[in-house]
Simulated scan of single mutants.
Amino acid sequence: MTRLIVFNKPYDVLSQFTDVKSPTPRATLSDFMQVPGVYPAGRLDRDSEGLLLLTDDGRLQARIADPRFLQEKTYLVQVEGEPDDAALAALRAGVRLNDGMTLPARARRIAAPDLWPRDPPVRFRKTVPDCWIELTIREGRNRQVRRMTAAAGHPTLRLVRWSVGAWSLDGLAPGEWREVVV
């Protein structure tokens, strides 16, 4: 039977089980779960939060993580400034990054989501407004969402991956996980 774990990765946690190369200890997946034989299907940067899928099935791992399968990933993104229609249209059309054009994305402004507090909190600046967008992409380039919002003129302040395909964070607090039937 295939195992699939839905995990809400907290901020400042590495998307791996060990961190032997670091001279200072950093939090890893093993601080939250001891499930033998499962591996992350894709990555989520240390400074990003949210959904990380882990499985023991190599084919499922490839279907989730390999860009050629165009698996949709939805992010809740707090950005600096207030993106206007032109900035959102740029994200929807695809933006040019240093490694080429992105595929078109779905992008819309949303009300601030009811999320857990982040530790440490996102910096607050009285003179610079911020807002939230929901961004759905079908690629998985390195730091892609952060680079896309910056290219559209609105750097990312907080990034939470909410869903990958049909799987979502619904009901999971940071550091919690559940096994789902595949």
Rank of each mutant, 00 (worst) to 15 (best):
S30N: 14
S30G: 05
D31S: 06
M33N: 09
V35L: 12
Y39D: 03
P40Y: 01
D45N: 14
R46I: 15
S48G: 12
S48M: 11
S48I: 11
G50Y: 11
G50E: 12
L51R: 02
L52E: 03
L54R: 03
D57E: 11
G58C: 08
R59T: 15
Q61L: 10
R63P: 03
A65F: 05
A65S: 13
D66Q: 14
P67K: 01
Q71E: 10
Q71V: 04
Q71L: 04
Q71T: 13
E72P: 15
E72Y: 00
K73V: 02
K73D: 09
K73C: 10
Q78L: 14
V79Y: 04
V79F: 00
V79M: 05
E80M: 08
G81P: 08
G81S: 04
E82I: 15
P83I: 06
P83A: 11
P83Y: 08
P83D: 09
A87M: 01
L88E: 07
A89D: 11
A90C: 02
R92K: 15
R92V: 05
G94I: 06
D99K: 09
D99C: 05
G100D: 00
L103M: 08
R106G: 05
R108G: 00
A111R: 12
P117W: 01
P121Y: 00
V122H: 03
R123A: 14
F124S: 13
R125Q: 10
R125N: 12
V128Y: 06
V128G: 02
V128Q: 10
W132Q: 07
I133F: 01
L135E: 09
T136W: 07
I137C: 05
I137P: 01
I137K: 03
R138K: 15
N142S: 10
N142H: 14
R143F: 08
Q144R: 12
V145R: 05
R147H: 08
M148V: 02
M148R: 03
M148Q: 06
T149C: 15
A150D: 14
G153K: 09
H154G: 02
P155S: 13
T156I: 11
